[in-house]
Amino acid sequence: MMMARLVRVMRIFLCGDVMTGRGIDQALPHPCDPRLHERYVQSAIDYVRMAEEANQPIPTPVDFPYIWGAALQELERVRPDASIINLETSITRSDAYVAKGINYRMSPENADCLVAAGVDCCLLGNNHVLDWGRAGLLETLATLDSLQIKTAGAGRDAVQASAPAILADTDAGRALVFSFASKTSGVPRHWAATHDRAGVNFLPAFSDATVAAIAALVAAVRRENDAVVVSLHWGPNWGYDIPEEQRWFAHELIDRADISIVHGHSSHHAKSIEVYKNRLILYGCGDFLNDYEGIKGHGEFRPDLAVMYIADLGPGSDLFALELVPLQIRGFQLIQTANSDVAWLRQTLDRESRQFGTCVGTAPGGRLALSWPTM
Rank of each mutant, 00 (worst) to 15 (best):
I149L: 11
G136F: 13
L130Y: 02
L123T: 11
N127H: 03
V129A: 11
G125R: 02
D145S: 15
Q148R: 11
L130P: 03
T143W: 10
N127F: 02
A117D: 10
D131T: 01
D145L: 12
L137N: 07
E139L: 02
R134N: 04
N127D: 05
L144Q: 10
L144V: 13
V115Y: 00
T143C: 14
D120E: 10
L123S: 11
V115A: 15
D145A: 15
G136D: 12
A135H: 07
A117C: 14
Q148H: 15
V115M: 13
L137A: 11
D145Q: 15
L138N: 14
T151Y: 00
G133D: 09
H128L: 07
W132T: 02
G133R: 11
G125A: 15
L124F: 01
I149C: 01
A117T: 11
G125Q: 08
T151L: 00
W132A: 00
Q148K: 14
D131R: 07
Q148N: 15
C122P: 09
A117M: 14
V119L: 06
N126S: 05
L138I: 13
E139N: 12
E139Q: 12
A116I: 13
L141C: 08
W132M: 13
S146N: 06
L137C: 12
L137M: 13
V115E: 09
L123H: 03
C122I: 06
L147S: 07
L138V: 09
L124R: 01
L137G: 09
N126D: 00
L141V: 10
D131W: 00
L123E: 01
D145K: 14
D131K: 01
D131Y: 03
H128A: 03
L138S: 12
L137Q: 13
V115L: 14
A135F: 07
L130K: 00
G118D: 04
L130G: 03
L144D: 13
D145V: 05
A152K: 03
L147I: 08
S146M: 04
A142C: 11
L144N: 12
L144H: 13
T151E: 05
C122Y: 03
D145F: 04
G118N: 08
G125H: 06
A142D: 15
H128E: 09
K150C: 05
E139V: 07
K150P: 00
L124C: 03
G133L: 11
D131Q: 01
E139T: 14
L141M: 09
D145I: 00
K150G: 05
N126H: 08
A142G: 14
A117W: 04
A152T: 05
S146L: 04
V119I: 15
C122T: 01
E139D: 15
L138P: 08
L147K: 02
G136R: 02
A135P: 08
T143H: 13
A142Y: 06
K150T: 08
G118K: 09
A152P: 02
G125K: 04
G133A: 10
K150M: 11
C122W: 02
T140A: 12
A152I: 04
Q148S: 15
T140I: 07
C122K: 01
L141R: 06
G136Q: 03
A117H: 04
L124K: 10
L141E: 08
S146K: 14
T140Y: 08
R134V: 09
G136N: 09
C121S: 06
T140R: 12
N127K: 02
V115R: 14
A116H: 02
H128K: 05
G125E: 09
L123Y: 04
